[in-house]
């Protein structure tokens, strides 16, 4: 997350004005060492394969990105115009580090890369608004034996 001090004042004030959600609990579990973890990317950059529907104006759903899909063909249809797109134009790994993840898998730093990855369109949703989608996604991750979710904000 960018430092507030590095943002233009108008953007910093926008973020400071947001309500932060207070969770009732703080669950914490440990797990196997990283070398045994199966990792999936969950992005909020509004990414999806070119053939899938764009994220619509009030889209609380997610899009699946199969691991075999050519990441260079991913589309970004995020609604916000307040973040930089030029890095994404140059290199998909700036928001979706699939090549970097595969490199760590090749050197056995992680156990494996998941068969499927996912993207939401992060747009300031309250947790309740995306809870149903997240519950559904959790089931898909369990089916894929994923035990490490790499959450990548944009």
């Amino acid at each position: 997350m960018v430092r507030l001090a590095d943002l233009p004042t108008v953007d910093a004030n926008h973020l400071l004005a947001k309500n932060t959600y207070q969770f009732d609990t703080q669950p914490f579990v440990d797990g196997p060492p990283l070398s045994k973890r199966r990792v999936a990317i969950i992005s909020t950059a509004g990414l999806h394969p070119a053939g899938q529907d764009n994220f619509n104006l009030r889209d609380t759903g997610y899009r699946a990105i199969p691991g075999a899909y050519n990441a260079d063909e991913l589309v970004m249809s995020h609604a916000s115009v307040n973040f930089d797109r030029t890095g994404f134009q140059q290199d998909i790994n700036i928001v979706f580090p699939i090549d970097r993840l595969r490199e760590l898998e090749a050197e056995n730093a992680i156990g494996s890369v998941a068969d499927c990855h996912y993207s939401f369109m992060g747009a300031g949703w309250e947790p309740k608004e995306i809870e149903a989608s997240c519950n559904q996604l959790a089931g898909l991750l369990k089916e894929d034996q994923v035990n490490a979710a790499l959450l990548v904000p944009v």
Partner: peptide, 9 residues
């Protein structure tokens, strides 16, 4: 910067 969670393309 926003839009660049992995820093540099």
């Amino acid at each position: 910067d926003l839009g660049r969670p992995f820093g540099a393309p």
